[in-house]
Simulated scan of single mutants.
Amino acid sequence: MTKYIKPIFFGVADPNKFSQGLNMILESLVTEGVYAGDNFFVMGRNLSFLEDTAFIQAFSRNAKTEVERAVLWRTAVILWGVRNAL
């Protein structure tokens, strides 16, 4: 099952309560293609960028903090734009 979960969400009044609620949602899902992090939650989406070995290796080498790891989706989108522009 393809899931990428990094519980970094900004502007949350009660991070513990938010995290508990998010965990309850995630535990109840049976769908693939779940991404949560960086104020972004999607389900049933194509996460094929997670299978791009070169991208994931480069990202893993350079993303040091949880905040940096949480922005994987937006990093993949930027890279997609760059690849298409080339």
Rank of each mutant, 00 (worst) to 15 (best):
E32S: 08
R61N: 02
S28D: 02
L47C: 01
N39W: 04
F40N: 12
V34T: 15
I78T: 14
P7I: 02
N16Q: 11
I78M: 03
A13H: 09
L86Q: 11
S48D: 15
G33L: 02
F18Q: 06
V12D: 04
W73I: 12
G11R: 08
N62T: 14
F41S: 09
E51R: 11
Q20A: 03
Q20R: 03
M43L: 05
K6R: 03
E66K: 07
V71A: 09
G37K: 03
A85I: 13
I5E: 00
R61E: 10
Q57I: 14
K17F: 00
A54T: 14
G33M: 01
A36E: 00
P7D: 07
V82M: 08
F18M: 04
R74W: 04
S28G: 03
K17L: 05
R83L: 00
T75P: 08
F55I: 09
S19T: 15
R61H: 12
K3W: 13
E32V: 13
S28T: 06
R61M: 05
W73S: 10
L29P: 05
I8W: 00
G21S: 07
M1A: 14
G21D: 06
V42Y: 07
A58N: 11
V67F: 09
I78L: 13
L47N: 03
G81M: 14
I56W: 10
V12C: 00
V82P: 06
A76D: 10
F55K: 02
G44H: 05
G44C: 07
N84P: 05
V82A: 13
D38R: 00
D52Y: 02
S28W: 01
R83T: 10
L50M: 01
F41E: 06
T65P: 02
G81F: 14
A58C: 08
N84F: 04
F10R: 09
S19P: 08
V67A: 14
S48L: 12
L72P: 11
Q57G: 02
L72H: 01
V82T: 11
M43H: 13
I25K: 14
K6C: 08
F59E: 06
N23P: 04
A36L: 05
T2N: 07
F55E: 07
G33E: 01
K3C: 12
A63E: 08
K3N: 13
G81L: 13
N46H: 00
F9N: 07
W73N: 12
E32K: 10
L79E: 01
M24L: 15
I25V: 15
V12S: 01
L47V: 05
F10A: 03
D38V: 05
T65A: 11
K64C: 09
E27Y: 07
L72F: 06
A54M: 04
R61K: 13
L29G: 04
S28V: 01
F9T: 00
S28E: 02
K6A: 07
F10W: 13
R83H: 12
